[in-house]
Amino acid sequence: MKIPILRLGDILLTSIQVDLTDAEVMQFQGDVLHAIADIEARGLLIDITAMEVVDSFMARTINDTANMARLLGAEVVVCGMHPAVALTLIEMGRGLIGVETTFNLNEGLVRLNRRIQQRGDSISTDQDE
């Protein structure tokens, strides 16, 4: 099971379409991070519209992926979380997902571009100092 990763300029777009086993989740994490490094992507948008369950393992993997992606220079936004999934995660415990989430793909792209912009701004101000 290989999840396709699409390239849109310096943004990567990926959509999880099936229920993944733990091994496939880890494989996905590796693939995505390699892809970011390969093209020096500045952003990664993960669409989880089709995910019916996001448990604490998946939540942690998403958080870890986002942290590692950031180290590689890419911002991460997750889009398309099913309302029932969002509700369940909130009920389980506050702050399980430490990544920006948006309702749909379009909004996700807007937010991702804004984050990339902000990051660029803060990097250039850091250098000015």
């Binding site: 448990d55 604490s56 393992f57 369940t88 009920e91 389980m92 415990g93 399980l96």
Partner: peptide, 13 residues
């Protein structure tokens, strides 16, 4: 090294 959210989360659900 997990979030430690499983058992308490399940209890709440």
């Amino acid at each position: 090294g997990g979030l430690g959210a499983g058992l308490p989360g399940v209890q709440r659900l």
